[in-house]
Computed example of a mutant assay.
Amino acid sequence: MTTSASAAVAHYAQRCIASVTGLVPVTSCAFYQVDAQLRPRHYLLHRMPGQVHQHYLSHYQQCDPLHPARFGHGTSVMPMGEAVAQGALLQSRYGRFMARHGMADVVELFVRRGGRVVAGFSLIRGEELGAFGAAELATLQQLHGLLELAASGNLPLQLAAETPDAGVLLTPREREVALLLRDGACNKTIARLLELGLPTVKTHLQHLYRKFGVNNRTELASRLFLDLAHGTEYGPVS
Rank of each mutant, 00 (worst) to 15 (best):
P40S: 01
R41Y: 00
R41A: 04
Y43I: 03
Y43E: 08
L44Y: 05
R47Y: 06
M48Q: 15
V52H: 10
H53F: 15
H53V: 09
Q54T: 12
Y56G: 07
Y56C: 06
L57S: 05
S58Y: 10
H59M: 02
Y60A: 09
Q61G: 03
Q62A: 05
D64N: 12
P65D: 01
P65Q: 01
L66M: 04
A69C: 12
F71S: 08
F71Q: 05
G72S: 15
H73G: 00
G74W: 05
S76I: 02
V77C: 01
M78A: 08
M78K: 08
V84F: 11
A85Y: 05
Q86N: 09
G87V: 01
L90D: 04
Q91I: 00
R93E: 11
Y94M: 11
F97Q: 04
F97A: 02
M98G: 10
M98T: 08
M98I: 03
M98A: 09
R100Y: 13
G102S: 02
V106D: 05
V106Y: 08
V106P: 00
V107P: 09
V111N: 06
R113H: 07
G114V: 05
G115V: 00
R116L: 03
V117P: 05
V117E: 00
G120A: 02
S122D: 12
R125D: 09
G126V: 07
E127G: 03
E128C: 05
E128A: 15
L129C: 11
G130W: 01
G133C: 07
A134Q: 14
A138S: 14
A138P: 06
T139W: 12
T139E: 15
L140D: 04
Q141K: 14
G145N: 04
L147S: 08
L149T: 08
A150L: 03
A150S: 09
A151R: 04
G153P: 14
L155D: 06
Q158K: 07
L159G: 11
L159K: 11
A161H: 13
E162Q: 14
T163R: 15
